[in-house]
Every structure is written in structure tokens, then in C-alpha cells.
Write a protein that binds this DNA or RNA. Structure first.
Lengths: 197, 197, 197, 197
DNA sequence: TATTAATCGAGACGGTACGTCAAGTCTTCTA
DNA sequence: TAGAAGACTTGACGTACCGTCTCGATTAATA
């Protein structure tokens, strides 16, 4: 069944694949989108320019392709039985994703690229939306368990939980430490209890 | 006293100044940083290329210069006598600043540019920091009045208040409505009271 | 004797042979040497690029190979018993060779290629030299029969007879009609008689 | 009077003009049309690629432009009072033009280019036609003086006079010596006298 | 009938040159 | 001096072919 229908012709080099992505991420991190020059990517990857173009028809595709694995990792919907720990878990993995070596510069550049290229913008949004969806899901489950008021605005709450992280990463540049996930959860979650008090 | 020491030679054209900035903002909004081409700016401004270069030595300078007035407007530290209304006032002006016609695209592009150019990054941060400082100031004043616990983490609180706005603008693209400032304030401010209860 | 030593392995496709030559001639005729692109030849011949390379190691080889049958046809040394008719016969076959459907463009391109590739130049010259040799032979025979003065410069005479054809084909582009062979012969041959008069 | 209406902006560099033409001719002579690579022309001329493109929008234009002065020099309609010397004069200048250092390779390549580009073909033909027209004019004058029969086919005669030169240059590669002009004139001109004898 | 040896298609690979575009500098004339 | 106009160098863009290379699939003659 796993017939592995090999296509005719010489197969693509996997080393080239990796080298190209790595080179792209390095450049993106060091000098922003503008520094991602196909010529330089090829040079660093030790690959001909055409080899890059064969995989990624345009610079947008290259950047998005290279970012995809960086941003989409570390995502799962946890279910620890308690909202707080679920939320902390989600925020922690998000912090991981955002502060990985090269991701710090990847995100703003991706967002800026999206400004000019709607296709890219959509592709980028999808990635981040999945995280928000996960958060909303976790909050809903908490409400079903009675940990949160059933009529809470889960969407707004999710934005409030995520917001500070992106704010610090993108705008203020303030450090994003280990304890931040818990601080945010502590600041936000009890909030809703007094409403029932 | 106001001797207006006129420099010798032909004085610079003020219309040119404005036209250049406007053209730059338009392009930035329409196609991102990459679309800001000196030649096109000059063409739209009805000006020679040299005239642009005389004012802004490089493209970075041009972009930053053009953005400066957009981002720094609408800023003052309100003092209504109550935290909540002060906060709502600050958030509202921020929403104004962020959702102005062209700002939506200007911000991410500025942030991405900062990724590659530390000077630009610093210049950009300063602008946004002033807003956060204003928020922290307002919160402190509230604490002094007893409206907030004195030992609250005002920095984190400010980030929690600002975060959702940037998150929606930059990442999720969700609409930023008129009522949002109040929703955020309501969600966050009572939180601290129960700590003292 | 017709041992037909078949080599082992799959024999070469004859259709491919023909298709490649035809495609090459078409391109040569339509767009000159520069238009003979291996990739395009392969495409038109409905053949893989490697199949072309297997037959013709280089583009020069391809062009020369394709031209060879076009230019070398229609050659024989006539012997009608009279110089004039021999000459007319030779000129007529030359006109045939030069004005065949695609030959019109083949010759100049071949000559230009020879400019850059001495091997090709030599190969090309050989083909045309055979025609001149035939003409000289015919003239010598005429001299032996007393139709021409024995001390005539047969080489120059041959060039004078051939020259107008190539001149019209290559340089002036003037039409080369059916009667031209006779006109040339009439203009040149009587010349030598008055010398004896 | 000599108002020399200068156009605005920086004027084009004359050194660049010359260097480009020279580099083109060198390459054309050394390796044929295919060797005329814009990149290499620019390199040899010590000039940026764009500077070449500004003057000559395409390679055809470049080659033709560079050839124009080579081929059009040495042309005038002589009037010595005798056909023979007029013809010898014309043939001699043609020999000069054809055997100049680089012309040997320039001509065939120009002709081959014409094969693919009708505009170029026309431009090239014009240049050579002027020489033939001059020859025809000289012959007509001779006829008017009674040196040639009035009903001679001057066009064919001109082709017969020019043909051998081009034939040797382009096809046979035979040497084109100093005495050739007279040999050809002697071989062709007396021919017509006996008609009147 | 299986093996063997060549051909054929497809297509990836490292390259070179193309023609275009924009950046930033320089030169000239005019206001 | 500023400004307009435009030539200039530099360097990246994305495309098109080059000639070489791996592959799997044919195709015959041979073992």
C-alpha cells in the first residue's frame, strides 16, 4: 500500500533542502527580510541559485517556507484537568516558540511581508490562529467544568492572555522570562471568580 | 531676536517636504517597506530624486522620518481623577493612533525594519515606550489613590492592557472596535481589587 | 559482407535521428544559429535533451551534422563535351543547392559559425571547395579541347563564375532566377575567345 | 548660430561610446556573434552593463552599431575618365574595406545575424547596396562614353565584378591580394568591346 | 527465459548570461 | 545654493539554457 510511487528523474537533494532553509533563517534573523537575498542564500547553502528557485518560486515563498517549521512547532491542546495549568502550558509552549534562537526576528519580518502580500498574510495568520483556537478551547473546557463563568468573553480573554507576549516580543522588546506564563495566568484567571462571589 | 537667520542660496521647498512624506506613507501603506522606492516617491511627490536624497540620506531615514509624525501623535497623560477613565482615555488614543488610515501597515513594517537596523529599532522603541510610560504613570497614580493595590506589578499590568491591541493589529487582524478600550479596562481593573478584599 | 554487426543493447531510434535534424534545420532557417537551442531542438523533436547530446556532443556538431546533407547534395562533374554546357550544368546544380527551401539561411549561419570554430570552418570549406574543384576541372577540359586559351587563369575564372551567385545569396539578396546560369556563362566564356582573335 | 541646444542632465560619456564599440568589434572578430556577450563587452569597455544597454537596447543593435563605421568607410564614386581605372579604384577600396583587420570576421557574422532579424538584414543590405550602386554608375558613365556597349546588363556586370571578392572572403577563404582588382577588371572589361568590334 | 547492455524519458544540479530594476553618486544646466 | 534632469556604477532580480548527472523504464541481442 505504501507504494512510494517514485517520480521519474533525478530526485531532489535533501541536504540542499535543509541548507536552504537554514541559510534563509540565518539571514532573516541577522538582517531582516531585506537581507534574504536569493543569491546569498544560495551562496551560504552551497547551492546554485537555480536550486533555490526550483523549490521556492519567489522570495515570499522562501521566507514563508523557511519559517513554517519554526513557528508551527510546539503546538498541542493540553488537558491537565485544570484551566490554570492548561493555560500555563499553552503560554509556555508559545514562549518557547517565540523565543527560539532565530524566531525573535522571524515574526516581525513575516508580519511585514504579509503587509504587501495577501497570500502570505493569510498563510501567516492561519499559523497563529491555531494557537488562539487552542487557548479558547482550553478556556471553554474550564467554563464547562465551572472554573470560569459560562458567559465570559473567551475570545477577549485569549487575546488578553496572548497579548503581553507579542507586545513584548514585537514592540517593547522587554525580556520574556520563564515565570511570565504563570504571572500572566495568575493575573488573569482569578479575575473571573469574583464575578460569581 | 527672532532674527530668522536666512541661509544663503535658494531655500528648501516646504511643499516638497510634505509631498515626499505623504508619498512615502502611501507607498508604505500600499506595498510595505519594499515598495518604498526613492524613484517612485520622487515621481509621486513631483520632485527630482536628488531632492529626496537631500532630505533623507538613505531609505531607512526616509521611512523612519515619514513615520515619525504618524506614530507620535495623540499622546498625553490624562488625569481624570479615576484610574478606569484614565486607562480608557489612554487606550482610546492608542486605538486612534493604531487604526489611522495608514498606520495599520506602517507599524509592522517599521518593526521589521528595526530588526535589521539597531538605530531604527531604538528610535522606534522610544516612540512606543512613551505610551507605556504614560500608562504606568496613570496606574501608579491610581494606586496612590488606593484604587489599585500598591504592590501590583504595574509593568505587567500595562502590558496586559496594551497587549490585546497590538495582538489584534499585528497578529490576528481581528477588528479593533470602539468599545474595546472599555472592555479591556473592565476585564483588567477590578482584578486587583479582590487582592485587597 | 553486409555483416550488419549489431551492437548489444537497445539500438538508437531512427525517428529521433530524423526529428532532431529536421528540428535543427527549421530553427536554423527561422532564427539563425542563435535560435538553435538544444532545449528547443529536443522539444520540437519530441525527444529528451540527453538524446540529442548522445548524437551530437556540441552545438557545432549538431548544426554541422544537420547541414551536411543539405549542402553536399547535387554535386557531380558533368561531361557534355562542351565547356559552356558543362559550366551551365554546374552552375545550375549550385543554384539548386543554394536555393533549396531552407538552404538560404543555412549558408550564412554556417559561415558565421566557422568564424568562431576553426574545425567547423574547415569542414564547411571542404564542402564548397569540391564545387570549385569541379568547375576548374571542367574549364581545364575545355582548354584541352581548345575551347579556352591554355594559359587562362582557371582559378580566377571559376571564382568569377561562382561569385555572383554567392554575392546575390549572401550580400545583396537579389533574386537568383533560372536563367542566371546561362547569363553568367554567356558573359564569361566568350571573353577568352577574342584573346585569340 | 551654432546654438548647440544642450539637453538637460549629464551628457553621455564619449569615451564609453568608443570603448563599447571597440570592445564589440574585438569580440566579434575573435569569437563571432556568439562571443559578443553584453557582460563581456561591458567588462572590456570598463563600463557598467546598464551603460551598454542605454546606448544599444539589444544585441543586434549593438553589433550593427559597432559594424556601421567599419563597413561604410572608404566609399566614393571615382571619376578618372576611364571605366577601367574607375572600376579598379572601386574594387580597390572595396578590398580595403573587406580586408581591414577585423572586417574578415565581421561581415559573415553580420550576414548571419540578418538571417534572424529582418530589420538588421535591411540595414546591412543598404550598406552594401551603396557600393553596388556606385559600380553601376561608373559602368553607365563608361557606356555613355562608348567604352561599353549601351545595352550591357550593368547589374549583372557589377555582380560579376564584386562576386569574386565576396566569394573569396566568405566562402573559399582564398587570399585577396593587391593585384586582384586589376585582374578582375582585365578579365571582365575587354569582354564587352568585341561586341562592338 | 532470464540476463545484460544500451537507449530513452524525465528532471535535478551547478553554472553563465540575459535583460530589468532600483539604489545611491555624479555632472550639467537653470531658477 | 536648490532643484530638475539624466548619466553613471553597483548589484540583485527572476528567466532561460547550458552541459552533466542520476534515475527508472524500455528494448533487443545473448546466455
Amino acid at each position: 500500500m505504501s507504494k512510494e510511487k517514485r517520480k521519474p528523474g533525478r530526485p531532489r537533494s535533501v541536504e540542499a533542502d535543509n541548507a536552504i532553509v537554514e541559510a534563509t533563517l540565518d539571514l532573516l534573523d541577522q538582517g531582516g527580510v531585506e537581507a534574504v537575498k536569493i543569491e546569498e542564500v544560495a551562496r551560504r547553502a552551497g547551492v546554485a541559485r537555480t536550486t533555490v528557485y526550483r523549490r521556492f518560486p519567489s522570495r515570499s515563498d522562501l521566507v514563508l517556507g523557511a519559517c513554517e517549521d519554526v513557528v508551527s512547532r510546539y503546538l498541542s491542546v493540553p488537558d491537565t484537568g485544570a484551566v490554570r495549568s492548561d493555560v500555563v502550558e499553552l503560554l509556555t509552549t508559545l514562549i518557547h516558540a517565540l523565543t527560539r534562537t532565530r524566531a525573535r526576528h522571524v515574526l516581525p519580518n513575516l508580519l511585514a511581508l504579509g503587509t504587501a502580500d495577501p497570500k502570505l498574510e493569510a498563510a501567516t495568520r492561519v499559523v497563529w490562529e491555531r494557537r488562539r483556537d487552542a487557548m479558547v478551547e482550553v478556556l471553554r473546557r474550564g467554563a464547562r467544568r465551572g472554573e470560569l463563568p459560562a458567559d465570559a468573553d473567551f475570545g477577549l480573554l485569549a487575546d488578553l492572555l496572548h497579548g503581553p507576549l507579542y507586545y513584548r516580543l514585537l514592540v517593547s522588546g522587554a525580556p520574556i522570562g520563564r515565570g511570565l506564563a504563570e504571572e500572566i495566568a495568575d493575573a488573569m484567571l482569578p479575575v473571573r471568580r469574583p464575578a460569581g462571589a
